[in-house]
């Protein structure tokens, strides 16, 4: 059963469904409305605009071809798109993993404690709920989850970035994920 969605979310669902039937105007509108956020995610993950542009382009081509697999009873358009774009970016990151590991500047990077919280205009019910649950985690673990989500890097690299042993990072993340599930599914 799909959760309640706002009119804005419904519009995106509608546009994606129309894209599936080859509606170019709907596709263009979907692009216009969602690209800044999706591009922002790609830039944050890849840290390089040229590559983020390539991923953005590739992912939108995929959206056009695979929109028919979108099922609004299973996911919102936002979740569907976000998943597709993050997956493309993660694939790209895995391809250049070694190069990243060699870059000391990237290795020393750590997300700030205050992770650019979404402003009032963007606070969907789902996001607010997630943030509430994230706030219940230990600060270090909360930070590790955000760093993992927005960097898209593997456990190994995540541990190196946060300067903790691999085992520690794994147990932080796993415990946090289980805690999040318990909190979110309440």
């Amino acid at each position: 059963m799909p959760p309640h969605r706002t009119p804005e979310q419904n519009l995106l669902d509608e546009l994606l469904a129309k894209t599936a039937s080859g509606d170019q105007a709907a596709f263009a509108e979907l692009y216009r409305l969602t690209s800044p956020r999706l591009y922002g995610v790609c830039v944050r993950m890849l840290r390089e605009r040229g590559e983020a542009e390539e991923v953005l382009q590739e992912a939108w081509i995929t959206v056009w071809h695979r929109a028919s697999t979108f099922d609004r009873t299973k996911a919102s358009a936002g979740t569907w798109l976000g998943t597709l774009f993050r997956n493309k970016a993660i694939d790209r990151l895995r391809q250049r993993r070694e190069q990243l590991l060699d870059d000391p500047e990237l290795m020393n990077h750590l997300e700030d404690e205050d992770p650019n919280p979404a402003d009032g205009a963007e606070q969907t019910q789902e996001y607010l709920r997630l943030r509430e649950c994230l706030d219940q985690l230990q600060p270090q673990q909360r930070r590790a989850i955000r760093e993992a989500f927005f960097s898209g890097v593997t456990y190994n690299e995540l541990a190196a970035r946060c300067q903790v042993p691999l085992g520690t990072m794994k147990s932080w993340i796993r415990r946090s994920l289980l805690q999040l599930r318990t909190c979110l599914d309440l």
Partner: peptide
Amino acid sequence: WQRRLLPLIAEAAPIEPPEYVWHRI
């Protein structure tokens, strides 16, 4: 899990993609 975690992308700052990306698509 996607439904649980994906809302976090609301925290990524939006960036306008260059105009030519849309042209290429």
